[in-house]
Design a protein around this nucleic acid. Sequence first.
DNA 1: GCTGTTAGTAAGTTACCGTAACTAACGCGG
DNA 2: CCGCGTTAGTTACGGTAACTTACTAACAGC
Lengths: 394, 394
Amino acid sequence: MQSTHLREHNLSAILIELATASSTSSPISRAGLAKRTRLTKPTVSKLVEELVDAGLAEEGAPLSAGAGRPMVPLTPARGTLLAIGLEIAADHVACLGIDLSGDVLSHRIEYRKVTATSAEESIDLAAELVGKVRADAGDLPVVEVVVAVPGRIAPDDGRVLSAPNLDWTEVPLVGRLLAHPELAGLSVRAQNDNRLSVLTEIDQRPGESFIYLRGSTGIGGAVVLDGALMTGAHGWAGEFGHTVIEPGGATCRCGRQGCLEAYVSYHALRERAGLSDDILIEDLVDALALTRDRAEVIGMIGRSLGLAIANALNVLDLTTVVLSGYLAPIADELEPVIRETVERHALAVEAGPVRIERSDGQVDPALHGAARAALQPVFNAPGAWITRAHHLTA
Amino acid sequence: MQSTHLREHNLSAILIELATASSTSSPISRAGLAKRTRLTKPTVSKLVEELVDAGLAEEGAPLSAGAGRPMVPLTPARGTLLAIGLEIAADHVACLGIDLSGDVLSHRIEYRKVTATSAEESIDLAAELVGKVRADAGDLPVVEVVVAVPGRIAPDDGRVLSAPNLDWTEVPLVGRLLAHPELAGLSVRAQNDNRLSVLTEIDQRPGESFIYLRGSTGIGGAVVLDGALMTGAHGWAGEFGHTVIEPGGATCRCGRQGCLEAYVSYHALRERAGLSDDILIEDLVDALALTRDRAEVIGMIGRSLGLAIANALNVLDLTTVVLSGYLAPIADELEPVIRETVERHALAVEAGPVRIERSDGQVDPALHGAARAALQPVFNAPGAWITRAHHLTA
DNA sequence: GCTGTTAGTAAGTTACCGTAACTAACGCGG
DNA sequence: CCGCGTTAGTTACGGTAACTTACTAACAGC
């Protein structure tokens, strides 16, 4: 490592610590940061000064806590920069602008059947929303734009390879977005919506390791190790949807047999119960419970998930599972079934209890996750951002 | 990070780069190290000088390669320190002493049925072997002693919780080793033998990500991400032996049903074919082929492994699988069967080919891995080792 | 022998962080 | 109400690691 990078590293460590502290517990002081980062007080003071000057951190009013001089609480600055999340989903296009503190500066959403229009129209609409959000926020410097798409994305150029729920194949998403004046000169990245959803969960559980399972039209997921999202060779580590839970079992839409999604995805559950496709994902379980015994429905979903989870736990040796999407509302019902199945199959439980928890996430985790992902450059390299922002405003 | 740690970090980076370069390709020069580590030439020169002075690196004779001044090749020093690996297996106790270059300075092995004697006797024998190896190597400063045990180990105090193949339960292995004069004052750690085996494979594939499967009495394994062994919450991430490949299937020794080990472990295969337990692990497949069609045997093993591998690949999104232990000699036969099973079940193959490879590892990977693990402190903190070694010799 | 090229060294500078000692601002107890 | 202990934060200074620039060393090819 070069000595120049040392400062950047420490600056980043301080800013991250500052953000996690003020989101999980209370604001933190310079002295507190010094303890956490193991840097000395003068060093922290100097770096914090730089962050405050650059509009990345804010001092609050001195706060007394018992004896001693009151601390000056530090928080991530509000309203000084803009990180933009975009979401293109089957039934809506949305744009969210947040600042470094995570506060929402603007939220624009347009409901429409994306499948009913061309991909180009949807992308143009998205670009339009970005323009409105930028205007709402008062033309703050933009860190990055991250787009959430329910499909597979080429890691090199942000091409959407395939997004079945949008009826998209080979759509040059990022390329077309960049062509719009609203996004000219910005850094734009595209990511799978499931992988972005988990970022909001990582915010809630800093530094933890867990398996994330999200039920939507399919079953998405991710693996988080020590607070870092695992990518894998092609960027879909933790996509549990096509884990085989029954060799030679039911045929899945992917053509294989016995996949998890062949049993507990929205489409599989709906079709096997003979329900119409007008039914909303979040109402699915309630609707199924009308046709059959609710315990039976929950049992079936829980056992299928349990098998997939058990194998994942065996391979990864983790102890926490977080249920999200349409699984979150029924997490408490599912928990005993999943637990029983996991304990029957997973070796890991011998070492201690497995925790199956409900995600208490945002309304739209993919959109929020995208916006949060768009903040990353600032947290990873505050110094670089400071010089960049300086050039942008000058 | 503190500025004091910067030097240690760079020293470590240089030493590691030096070791990987001289093991994979040819020796490397100061200028080459500067390019790889992105440090400047003067910085590298200074740090290399420190390594050479401390007996961690060696200069070779100048070597001309085309135009320009010939480079001075640098290699890890040989014969200046001792890292000790111990192995306690069902039929032998072995000790291996290597230096920083990986050269074997001494190898002592005693064949005996460890189950036939008490745990204490075996540990005493191991300590004795350590003494001999230290004498063989000429009383060099010892970095660390790492013990490979086929069982579960308490991470805090090196107690063996259970080692079925040794008939051990609750054996204070590290504690008793430390009580011997041959190991007085040394740093001693115990680790599972499968997890140590993979270290030799990591040496062969620096920086790669892969799944490692080792067939011995059970099916052990590990997950390697970017050259780093994944640990998991309890240190057994990648233990594929108890992955469920057939819900409600054959009963395993662990009490669960349908585990991989219930199908393709040494004991499972041997017992189902009605063979005696005198048969060696490496001869098992040949012996099975006498009772049945060889293709049938290979097919059965391959399909079972394939299911477990497919699920692991789905979860981890990796592309390389390395077969080791008794699986290595038959890897070429297994490959088509595993490939076919994996391609039928794994989603990851859609993005590219899955490579199923044979480990061309050492004769005794666990022992070599243990010795290599005992080198780690030097690579991780060369500066700390230098001052420590200075104290030891003074 | 000249030139271009690559390896390595030397001297001086920059810059980051740590140490030590200070001031600031509080609560508390006499 | 005034010191005293305590915690927060700053100032001044020094050490040290790495970078910059400029050099020498040693080769190949013409």
